[in-house]
């Protein structure tokens, strides 16, 4: 598959969404709402439950299933409230020593007047800032689209997993082609150049694991094993290692 086909495939509307992963991986899931500041963003779903026998806080960016559901979830493009809800739940997880599990699938943070005026930039920045020292393990898994800052805001994690057919990118290939060559039809060339596939990102050490298509039960076992491993690391060491993980990106490439 060409890189651009991976992008198109990641956008297919019959793919499993964050809700499917939560249903498949997390038992006894209870959804919680609201950012306690302004509202409840439907693009971000979150709550608590178990992965195997491990209590977790789980957060996902949900695109929705059918047309109405997609509109309800704003097509998986979060407003600032979404990121603030995610951060609120993470802080709660920190308090109760639960690991955090994020399923990321978004074309990008929502671009709108309201989103801008309620501080989309600040909301994303603040997530990166707070997650960098969150005193509990964080595992993020990219399950479809990883659209720029909007996806990154849930990926400042101890480990980043990625579906083999997902993508994670600084800019959509179409916008990239438009900016560079004033031609959105060259998106496939842009997609190649941007190195956005799981394989290419893994080769550069930007993600930690490529996940194949496996039954949800098996995925749950793998996630639980990883979370137990992370839970055993003393908190100070965990955050130091998280700092080092991102610190090393980009200079000694």
């Amino acid at each position: 598959m060409k890189d651009y086909d991976i992008v198109l495939n990641a956008r297919r509307d019959d793919r499993l969404t964050a809700g499917d992963y939560i249903k498949g991986v997390v038992s006894n899931f209870i959804e919680f709402h609201g950012d306690r500041l302004y509202g409840d963003d439907k693009a971000v779903i979150g709550g608590i439950g178990y992965v195997g026998n491990t209590p977790v806080t789980v957060i996902g960016i949900e695109k929705g299933k059918d047309v109405n559901d997609r509109i309800y979830h704003n097509f998986g493009s979060a407003n600032p409230e979404g990121y603030r809800k995610a951060l609120r739940l993470m802080k709660q997880a920190e308090k109760f020593h639960r690991p955090v599990l994020c399923f990321v699938d978004t074309a990008g943070a929502f671009c709108g007047v309201d989103a801008e005026e309620r501080g989309q930039g600040r909301a994303i920045a603040h997530n990166l800032y707070e997650m960098s020292t969150l005193k509990t393990p964080i595992l993020s898994m990219l399950i479809g689209e990883g659209g720029s800052g909007g996806a990154l805001a849930l990926c400042h994690s101890d480990v980043i997993w990625m579906k083999h057919d997902a993508y994670f990118c600084v800019v959509s290939p179409e916008s990239c082609a438009n900016i560079l060559w004033k031609n959105t039809k060259k998106a496939d060339e842009a997609a190649d150049a941007l190195a956005l596939t799981a394989k290419k990102l893994y080769e550069r050490g930007l993600i930690d694991k490529i996940c194949e298509d496996i039954p949800m039960k098996k995925l749950a076992t793998q996630i639980e094993e990883q979370l137990i491993k992370l839970n055993k690391i003393p908190v100070g060491k965990l955050t130091d290692e998280r700092y080092a993980k991102f610190r090393n990106i980009g200079y000694d490439y």
Binding site: T133, H156, V170, A195, L196, I249, G250, Y253
Partner: peptide, 15 residues
């Protein structure tokens, strides 16, 4: 610089 530049956001924010 693709994802390497995007992840600078995380790197600087942590610092």
């Amino acid at each position: 610089e693709g994802m390497i530049s995007l992840m600078q956001m995380s790197k600087v924010s942590a610092a």
